[in-house]
Amino acid sequence: MNPAVRDAAHVVDAASVMGLLATRPRLLALGEPTHGEEVLLDLRNDLFRQLVEQEHYRTITIESDCMMGLVVDDYVTSGTGTLDEVMERGFSHGWGAYAANRELVRWMRAYNDGRPASEPLRFAGFDGPLEITGAASPRQSLTALHACLTAWVDADLLPCAADTLDRLLGADDRWTDPAAMMDPSRSVGQTPEAKQLRLLADDLAALLYAQAPHLLAASSRDDWDRARMYGRTATGLLRYHFWMADTSPSRMARLLGVRDSMMAANLLAIAERGPALANAHNGHLQRNKSRMRMGGLPVEWWSAGAIVSARLGEGYAFLATALGTIRHQGVEAPPPDTVEGLLYALPEDRYVVDARRLAAVVDDVTPAPRVSPWFGYSPLDPAHVAGHDGIVFVRDARPS
């Protein structure tokens, strides 16, 4: 065991995390190297509870559909609905089926029970209404934005009537055709109707900002924030669908970049309203470009974390998470000459590690990149260790 690595490792708790940071960041992000491992979600819950209770973070946001997340926020802040309904309707990507996510929502509701209405702990999804197989219709966000403006501003300021949007949108299954992800000709994103919708969505979002003094006086800050999210989501989805219809070699890089830029815009808006905690894949939260191979070709784009970090500076902090083994997925103990191998030699099950001190060790020993036999696990890149504020290391992930 390398003594310098041992000296850089601390118990995983809020005090250790804050001890790595020069100041309390406005947005503190905890990444994960793979999705769906309950040990990582349980660790997240424990750490986020401590950070809420001890450091007064006011929002928890995860890599889930921002529109669906409104259902969860209504439940944890005011008790709207039931826990079963919320887990079914409030999460994308299947996250509602995970016991740790259910426990997080249950705890947030219990934490808010009896608290002043002016000091709630909030929940948010920060992903767009997107899946790996495609994207949602822009109908929900676009019509919600139009409805907000209809209720608040003079009708003659609106660029169109609601039935115009309905006619241009057409049937939702035109937008959600899963074949369009692999076949641009199946996408409706560059049809004349879609192009007109992009202009109308832009005009509606611009009107929202132009009327900000009136809207903030006539409604609540929560209403304003939701309307802004509708605008970001509608314009983002229409942009995403536009590039789904693209046939150039940069198509996938553009789609991945649009998704992360939508994530970044949501994270920045969440951070505006107070200190927030975020949880998502390391690849979305890191400060570096994200990279992957698709169809045998390399694709790279700026991650949401890179965009947010560029905007917030020290107001953004990122903890990457790494795993030693995921044996049920064929990921065995890491080679000792990798970053994970250095951490795996430590005696305890989990640590939070000072990334900058670890980077000094990495510079001395020049570890090899770890190669995972399973595509679902993304190992740490030795070249990027110094760009993290900390690394959370969990020795073993076991089947749920």
Rank of each mutant, 00 (worst) to 15 (best):
G125W: 08
D202P: 07
Q50S: 09
T164P: 11
S185N: 10
R186I: 01
E348R: 11
S185P: 02
T59L: 04
G31P: 00
A333L: 10
D183S: 04
A99D: 14
M292D: 12
P373E: 02
G341V: 07
L28N: 00
Q54G: 07
A117E: 13
A359E: 00
F375M: 12
H241D: 08
M294L: 15
S78Y: 10
A368F: 06
V153T: 14
E32M: 11
V188Q: 11
A227W: 13
M182L: 15
R122V: 08
H284A: 03
L104Y: 04
D46G: 10
A180W: 04
V71C: 09
R109D: 07
V71E: 08
W243G: 06
S185Q: 13
D156K: 09
E38I: 15
Y209F: 11
L297I: 14
A271K: 02
R327T: 14
A280Y: 01
R228D: 08
P159S: 06
S185V: 10
Y351T: 14
T233C: 09
D349N: 12
A124L: 12
V308H: 01
P373H: 05
A245N: 12
D127F: 06
L346K: 08
A265M: 12
F123K: 00
P192L: 12
L277H: 00
N266E: 15
G189A: 08
T325M: 05
Y316P: 04
E32C: 06
V331Y: 05
S250H: 10
H56R: 14
L319G: 05
G90A: 11
P3K: 08
R122H: 14
V52S: 00
W107T: 08
H241Q: 14
A151F: 05
A217K: 15
A212N: 10
P373Q: 00
T80E: 13
N279F: 15
P369C: 09
K289F: 03
M67P: 01
P399D: 09
T338V: 06
P116C: 08
D113Q: 08
Y377I: 14
R293P: 02
I391K: 01
E131F: 03
L285F: 01
A265E: 15
T321A: 13
L169G: 00
H284W: 05
V153I: 06
P116Q: 04
D13A: 06
N282C: 07
T59F: 07
W302R: 14
L168G: 00
M244N: 11
P369T: 09
A9V: 12
E88G: 09
Y240P: 02
